[in-house]
Amino acid sequence: MDFLTTVLLLLVGAGGGVALANTLRKRTGITDVRRDSVLLLERIEKVFKVVMAEGYFSEIYNYQDQKKILYVLNDPKKAMVIAKSKVLVGFDFAKVRFHAPDNGEKKLVIEFFPQPEVLSIDTDYKFYDIQAGILNHFSGADYTQILDEAKKAMNERAMQSDLPKIANNQIQYMMYQLASSMGWQLQLPEAEQRKLDALKAQAEEATKNQSQLLTGQ
């Protein structure tokens, strides 16, 4: 076998191998996809935030933007977003102001206690019915604006629900129980103290009723 024949056989073999590899790749659906990500840590902060209530919400958000071509023809674009969120409501204890009496009395006086707030919103967004205009197309900034507005609407809906009230009741009763277990007396601001006293009365009544049911009286 001469040199030319050997080269031809090698080329044919190599070509056949490439063709076979391509065929197998197409049949198995294997694609070579590479993704790169970079994680940037901006800062770490110490916080003292306590979650007292958790709620789940679904929201349908309709976005529409009207744009005129040559100030005459409408060129609208619109999209519908379905958002499902888990909302955590609680308190930032860094905002609490309190003191203990100088006479050594086991009493914790709360001078100021913050209102409940949304601590986090974990949302899953899905876009439906996206319709771009002829010249009025969607940009990355448009999608960012839509998600920001949908998240803002979810925040407002959560604060208008029963979550803040539930969180308030939870934190006050928890603080009362914790102070009592350590032999301390808890004194809240007047308005909050009335709420706490009402909660304590309800808890005592519920315990009394449960005891009567167990004893059959």
Rank of each mutant, 00 (worst) to 15 (best):
M1P: 15
L4Q: 14
T6Q: 14
T6W: 13
V7P: 06
V7M: 14
L9T: 11
L11K: 12
G16E: 12
G17Q: 11
V18D: 07
V18Y: 14
V18A: 15
T28G: 06
R35E: 01
D36Q: 06
L40F: 04
L41S: 11
L41E: 08
V47P: 04
V50Y: 06
E54Y: 02
G55R: 03
Y56S: 02
S58K: 15
S58V: 13
E59N: 13
Y61E: 05
Q64E: 13
L70T: 12
N74E: 10
A79Y: 08
M80N: 04
V81F: 04
A83S: 03
A83H: 00
K86I: 12
V89L: 06
V89Q: 02
F91P: 00
D92F: 08
D92G: 10
A94N: 14
K95E: 13
V96A: 01
F98G: 03
L108D: 01
V109M: 05
F113C: 10
P114V: 06
S120Y: 06
S120I: 08
T123Y: 03
T123A: 09
Y125W: 10
Y128E: 11
Y128A: 11
D129Q: 14
A132E: 05
A132R: 03
G133Y: 00
I134M: 05
I134G: 01
I134Q: 02
H137L: 08
H137P: 03
F138K: 01
F138P: 00
G140P: 01
D142V: 03
I146N: 01
I146H: 03
A150D: 04
A150K: 03
K151E: 15
Q160M: 13
S161Y: 12
D162P: 00
P164W: 07
P164Q: 12
P164A: 12
P164S: 10
A167Q: 03
Q170M: 09
M174L: 13
Y176D: 14
L178H: 10
A179S: 13
W184E: 00
Q185S: 15
P189A: 08
E190H: 09
E190M: 09
Q193V: 05
Q193Y: 05
L196C: 07
L196T: 03
A198I: 09
L199N: 12
E204D: 14
E205Q: 13
A206P: 10
A206W: 10
K208D: 14
Q210I: 09
S211A: 15
S211C: 05
S211R: 15
T215G: 02
G216W: 06
Q217G: 07
